[in-house]
Amino acid sequence: MSKITLKTASVLAFERKLDPSDALLFSGAWADRNNASNWSEITLREKSVRGTISNRLKAKDQDPTKVDAAIESANLQTVDIAALDSQHDTLQMRFTLRVLSGAGTPSACNNADYQQKLQQTVQGYVQDQGFSELAKRYASNLANGRFLWRNRMGAEQVEVRVARLVDGQAAQNYCFNSLDFSLRNFESNSPELEQLAETISKGLAEEEHVLLEITAFARLGAGQEVFPSQELILDRGRGDKSKTLYQVGNIAALHSQKVGNALRTIDTWYPVEEDQLALGPIAIEPYGSVTTQGKAYRQPKKKMDFYNLLDAWLLKDQVPAVEQQHYVMAILIRGGVFGDAS
């Protein structure tokens, strides 16, 4: 009998295995980190401002009289704002994180042969490499407070506490001084970080049920502005605000997607040109896309994107370098729809 040529499934989907909740924001004092009752919810308020025209003008609009006329027309805006209480100097951010097993097992696949080969490949990776490298990087992004995003910048002190919950109670506790951990690499280490990484690794490997509660404190200064997620308003006919912030039950919050993006910012294995400066870790994405730069660091032409690496590994039995195996597995942990559309 002739060997059946393996083809990518046209229906292929994976559920995410790192599942964060929305992150809620609270206001309090740095000295009250151990007293939960002294923290108040951060709510949104509106602010109306009279801005100036500062956008780049077209050549036809650069006549002095036209510029003066434009400046006279004030740039009126109504925006959402969130800030600490005037008596409080510290932001508290809270969210939970589920670590799920079954990485590499598709939630939908319409090709049994392909699914069998995929599971064999994933099992081979787990036996040879395990989840220790990926788990350490996820743990590092909890310890360094990357999920605080702009709220971390310029903070005088940042502390992250991680509690592993069993039956609703904290069975293990970890505490990190986030400023001791780099955002540029994953070389920082500590005994607590190793223990947290081992816990996450066991959750991914289905050895234990893992639910984490993360509480971060950033000392910013009394009354300082904080930065929840900004809503994308697709229907511009709704309201007249130029900036709408996200809230959950009247509490300012970050989207779970934004928290998840920070946790999976672990890709240091992307190719870098000789004339390029290394960007540091980027989020795990099929094409290595960095939207703030408008650039994809894993171009299909270089065969370093997720689809080329996965197809070479599964369909052609060309085993990628260990670093790229980590990357492919991180994509499967991230989840998504990866079928070969006809």
Results as ranks from 00 to 15, higher is better:
Leu12Ser: 05
Ile214Ala: 02
Ala135Asp: 05
Leu220Thr: 03
Leu277Asp: 14
Glu192Met: 07
Ser190Gly: 03
Phe306Met: 05
Val322Arg: 09
Ala23Glu: 13
Glu192Asn: 12
Phe217Trp: 10
Leu204Phe: 15
Ile282Thr: 06
Tyr114Arg: 04
Ile42Asp: 04
Ile331Cys: 09
Leu314Asp: 14
Leu148Ala: 03
Ala216Gly: 05
Asp22Cys: 08
Pro191Glu: 06
Ile53Glu: 07
Lys47Asn: 14
Leu57His: 01
Leu245Arg: 01
Gln123Ala: 14
Ala36Val: 12
Ala29Ser: 13
Ala103Ser: 12
Arg264Gln: 05
Thr199Lys: 01
Cys109Glu: 08
Phe95Ile: 06
Ser190Ile: 00
Gly237Trp: 08
Thr215Met: 00
Asp267Trp: 06
Asp317Glu: 15
Val259Arg: 03
Thr5Arg: 14
Arg164Thr: 07
Leu84Pro: 05
Leu6Asp: 04
Val67Glu: 06
Asp61Phe: 03
Ser289Phe: 10
Glu187Gln: 15
Ala253Val: 05
Pro281Ala: 13
Val126Gly: 04
Phe217Ala: 05
Asn308Cys: 15
Lys303Trp: 04
Gly130Ala: 06
Lys303His: 08
Gln324Glu: 13
Arg334Thr: 11
Pro64Val: 08
Pro191Ser: 02
Lys3Thr: 15
Arg161Glu: 15
Gly203His: 00
Gln224Ala: 13
Leu314Ala: 07
Leu196Pro: 00
Arg152Phe: 12
Leu6Trp: 09
Arg238Cys: 07
Glu285Ser: 08
Asp89Phe: 02
Ser132Lys: 08
Gly28Glu: 01
Ile53Lys: 11
Pro286Ala: 03
Glu41Ile: 11
Ala9Met: 12
Ser37Asn: 11
Met329His: 02
Val210Tyr: 07
Val319His: 09
Arg238Phe: 08
Ile251Trp: 02
Leu310His: 10
Tyr307Ser: 07
Glu213Tyr: 13
Phe306Arg: 01
Ala31Val: 10
Arg33His: 05
Asn261Ile: 05
Glu198Gln: 10
Gly339Lys: 09
Ser40Asn: 14
Thr90His: 02
Gly104Arg: 03
Phe227Val: 10
Thr268Trp: 01
Leu310Ile: 09
Ala108Thr: 11
Val328Glu: 00
Phe26Ile: 00
Ser10Leu: 06
Arg236Tyr: 11
Lys316Met: 12
Glu72Gly: 13
His209Thr: 07
Tyr125Gly: 01
Thr265Gly: 08
Thr65Gly: 06
Ser242Gly: 15
Asp340Glu: 15
Gly239Ser: 10
Leu211Met: 11
Arg50Glu: 10
Ala143Thr: 06
Pro281Trp: 02
Arg264Thr: 07
Lys117Arg: 14
Tyr114Cys: 00
Ser54Asn: 15
Leu165Glu: 11
Asp22Leu: 12
Arg238Gln: 15
Arg16Tyr: 02
Asn55Ser: 14
Ala216Cys: 00
